[in-house]
């Protein structure tokens, strides 16, 4: 009984740590969608690029981790701005398929560049100590603890930013009603650029964290698609939903790995997507999303 409870807590806490990273990346998705109605399927590649840059600066140039983390953030801002300005701006007003497809084209370009520069091998950070911390029998590595900590801090910072900061309020205004926001003197283009910057930054932070846990390789970009269930579960246009959805999906992934694995091996790879299909069938606009009502 005791050990079963410990096993459950172990899965729950590991899931929460992973889920907090998912929540960060999901936040990036939601920000871009809210402001610009674009689903950025290249989010996973943003994440991978961030992880590679941080790794490269830390290991190849020998800077310390905090400095390379900061440099990566600067680069992410540039990447976000460049993508928004060069690729997405010309497509404003085009049908959804063009916009989805252009982000998919971006995934090809970014992945190709990453392979060209860094090659195909999986590399390790090895920065955080290996031995786990013991909480009354539940073992968590430092990595998971740091991930949980960093993600929670960032999510709080963003919550405050959207609530009180001037730019945050601008962003919410644009998401709410573009034309109205523009006529109040808010620069819609500025807000678009801002959303892409923040999305690129949060996803590269997510990338660095996941890269520490799983190693940095091209497969990191799959996190971008893995986060989709979280985004849909929470509702595409809800920031709170992204956070809660991310945590739920992380926990579900670990619980399914823990309890269903003996019956269907490796079910955790696909379990979030099964949940996704169910959510789409039952409550397509997610837990907190705004339902689109159409009347003739």
């Amino acid at each position: 009984m005791e050990s079963e409870f410990l096993f459950f807590m172990q899965m729950l806490l590991s899931g929460l740590s992973m889920g907090s990273i998912y929540a960060l990346v999901a936040l990036g998705f939601v920000l871009i969608y809210k402001a610009t109605s674009i689903l950025n399927l290249a989010q996973g590649e943003f994440l991978m690029v961030g992880a590679y840059i941080c790794l490269s600066i830390t290991l190849d140039f020998g800077l310390n981790f905090v400095a390379s983390f900061m440099l990566t953030m600067v680069f992410s801002v540039i990447l976000g701005l460049a993508v928004e300005r060069l690729v997405l701006r010309p497509l404003i007003g085009e049908p959804i398929i063009s916009v989805i497809m252009v982000t998919l084209g971006l995934t090809y370009i970014l992945r190709g560049l990453v392979i060209m520069i860094w090659g195909n091998d999986i590399r390790q950070f090895n920065i955080f100590p290996e031995q786990p911390v013991d909480f009354w029998g539940v073992k968590l590595t430092y990595l998971y603890l740091y991930s949980l900590g960093i993600s929670l801090v960032l999510l709080t910072v963003f919550a405050i930013f959207f609530k009180y900061a001037r730019t945050g309020i601008f962003m919410r205004a644009v998401a709410d009603h573009q034309t109205a926001a523009q006529s109040m003197g808010i620069s819609v283009k500025g807000v678009f650029a801002m959303s892409w910057c923040i999305a690129a930054v949060v996803s590269s932070i997510g990338g660095i964290l996941v890269g520490n846990i799983a190693g940095v390789g091209v497969d990191l970009s799959y996190i971008g698609l893995k986060v989709l269930p979280a985004v849909i579960l929470g509702g595409l246009d809800s920031i709170l939903g992204a956070i809660i959805g991310g945590l739920i999906v992380g926990v579900l992934e670990f619980l399914s790995a823990g309890y269903l694995d003996p019956y269907i091996p490796a079910i955790n790879e696909v379990f979030p997507f099964i949940v996704l299909v169910l959510v789409l069938m039952i409550k397509p606009y997610g837990l907190f999303g705004i339902e689109e009502i159409e009347r003739v």
């Binding site: 690729v87 010309p90 497509l91 085009e94 063009s98 497809m101 252009v102 998919l104 084209g105 971006l106 995934t107 090809y108 370009i109 970014l110 992945r111 190709g112 560049l113 392979i115 060209m116 090659g119 195909n120």
Partner: peptide, 24 residues
Amino acid sequence: ITWFVSIKEIVFGCVIVLFLIFEP
């Protein structure tokens, strides 16, 4: 040789993006 492995991917990515922008 490592530089050229992913030429195909990059070119196809660019082709997709350029087509969508200029020849939707």
